[in-house]
């Protein structure tokens, strides 16, 4: 694995191993918070923060943590950073924190993060871990942003709360409802598979 460049570790999270569209991990927040683009973006930022900080710490302490308690240790580390992110959002961006509701604390159980700690950070150097985490986080955020943007445009005719489709547009209510999340995600996963097969 050592002959892979740092850029590859960053890039793979965005396309070839995108956590949402290829690995299909952490779909609960993907489906739930993508009712608008700003929610998707905030969620993505919180995940990037938690993912890079916790994989960073895991990568530093990987040699001293006994194999038997590694998952418990990782979970404590992840939970710490998630709580920090939650408190920060509540203090600085109360409105966004309100909109995301319980999904910020729920990042604790997001399997992308534990997955990256276990599968990558505990086996690779600090620099590569950071690149991998950033790539995965950006890939997650982009997928959320596209899905959130699509649902917001079709479901309410707006993007980032700015009306773009005009008054005559009749919103497709289904796109804001949970069914819209599944339809949108399905289309995106299909499209992604098509792109990758063509390569």
């Amino acid at each position: 694995m050592d002959d892979r460049s740092g850029f590859f570790e960053f890039k793979k999270g965005i396309i070839s191993q995108n956590p949402v569209l290829i690995l299909l991990l952490g779909l609960c927040p993907v489906l739930a918070v993508t009712t608008s683009a700003i929610n998707a973006l905030t969620m993505g930022a919180a995940v990037i923060f938690v993912l890079s900080s916790s994989t960073f710490v895991v990568s530093i302490i990987k040699r001293v943590v006994p194999y038997q308690v590694r998952i418990a240790t990782f979970t404590i580390i992840i939970a710490t950073f998630v709580t920090i992110a939650d408190l920060f959002l509540k203090a600085q961006f109360p409105d966004l924190s309100k909109a995301l509701g319980p999904y910020v604390p729920l990042i604790v159980v997001n399997c992308i993060i534990l997955g990256r700690c276990e599968a990558f950070a505990s086996k690779n150097s600090i620099l590569k871990t950071l690149l991998d985490a950033l790539g995965m986080g950006v890939g997650f955020t982009l997928a959320l942003l596209v899905l959130g943007g699509m649902r917001e445009i079709l479901g309410s005719g707006k993007i980032f709360n700015i009306s773009i489709l005009g008054q005559s547009y009749e919103p497709m209510l289904v796109m804001i409802l949970p069914a819209g999340a599944f339809i949108g995600l399905g289309l995106m996963v299909g499209l992604m598979n098509m792109i990758i097969k063509k390569r």
Binding site: A32, T35, K98, A99, G101, I176, L177
Partner: peptide
């Protein structure tokens, strides 16, 4: 305060 499903 509320933690109802976003969007619904």
């Amino acid at each position: 305060e509320s933690v109802e499903t976003p969007g619904l």
